[in-house]
């Protein structure tokens, strides 16, 4: 089996702060491998057989190699970074097109594609389904469990429905939950990862035109953006005596 995992490096959104003018402070915010991507990779590493190949691919700036390296530590055995100045500013459509071009050209004989449910920075959850549509294959979002025997079966959770489907080869799956007790890479994993080369591919290598990628290949445009500010009237109550505080709270609620 040959698995392809689409991963993304994201700023750690839990550590982003806003300054008093409402602007994002990006400096000093660490970049991490998106947690959902890690869940997806973990799922693949649990079901893979030793002879299976696990390819991770990410589109991003050269710094995204850090996250790809983490994927190698976690068990991937081949890694690609799609990086080009022209890729900057891509919306979901341009991103999916770039990833699709990679899959068609460098991993056309894959068996399954895995993605995280959504990325922590954009929260759009669009890339899996767009890529599936562009490859003209079936999609299985919100996957929680996968069983591979002679057929592949996946459990999907739609919040109000749990369904089990058979997955044809070539499908795209998006993974929504991870194992909290998942494996942490060891020193030997780290050393193994150091020996694997992360191949960088640019626009030309993928055979894409200027107007298929990045901001020029995007269908949507950001018109304006701002940081929201929340208002508060800020009455402070001392709660060292729980019963007093509870009385006051009840008065406020009723």
């Amino acid at each position: 089996m040959k698995y392809v995992i689409l991963v993304k490096q994201v700023p750690d959104t839990t550590r982003i702060k806003v300054d008093e003018n409402g602007n994002l402070i990006r400096q000093g915010v660490p970049s991490i491998l998106d947690p959902y991507c890690e869940y997806a990779l973990d799922m693949v590493c649990r079901i893979r057989k030793p002879e299976d190949s696990v390819i991770v691919v990410s589109m991003g700036p050269p710094q995204a190699k850090e996250s790809i390296f983490r994927c190698l530590e976690l068990g991937a055995n081949e890694a690609y970074l799609l990086s080009d100045k022209a890729f900057a500013g891509a919306d979901v459509f341009a991103t999916s097109r770039t990833l699709t071009a990679f899959i068609r050209k460098f991993a056309a004989d894959y068996d399954l594609i895995f993605c995280g449910k959504q990325a922590a920075d954009g929260d759009t959850a669009e890339v899996p389904a767009e890529t599936a549509a562009m490859l003209n294959v079936q999609q299985f979002c919100y996957s929680e469990n996968i069983i591979i025997s002679d057929t592949i079966k996946v459990t999907q959770n739609y919040n109000d429905e749990i369904r089990v489907c058979t997955v044809p080869k070539g499908s795209v799956l998006s993974v929504s939950i991870g194992d909290i007790n998942r494996r942490v890479p060891s020193i030997s994993d780290h050393i193994k990862a150091l020996n694997i080369e992360i191949k960088t591919l640019d626009r030309i290598a993928l055979g894409l035109g200027m107007y298929s990628v990045g901001i020029k290949g995007s269908k949507t445009k950001i018109e304006s953006s701002y940081s929201p500010r929340y208002e508060h009237s800020g009455k402070i109550i001392d709660g060292t005596d729980p019963s007093e505080a509870a009385k006051l709270l009840i008065k406020e609620v009723l």
Partner: peptide, 13 residues
């Protein structure tokens, strides 16, 4: 976007 840190207005051509 960005975990609610930014509110963006988007158009599509």
């Amino acid at each position: 976007a960005f975990g609610g840190n930014i509110i963006a207005t988007i158009s599509c051509d």
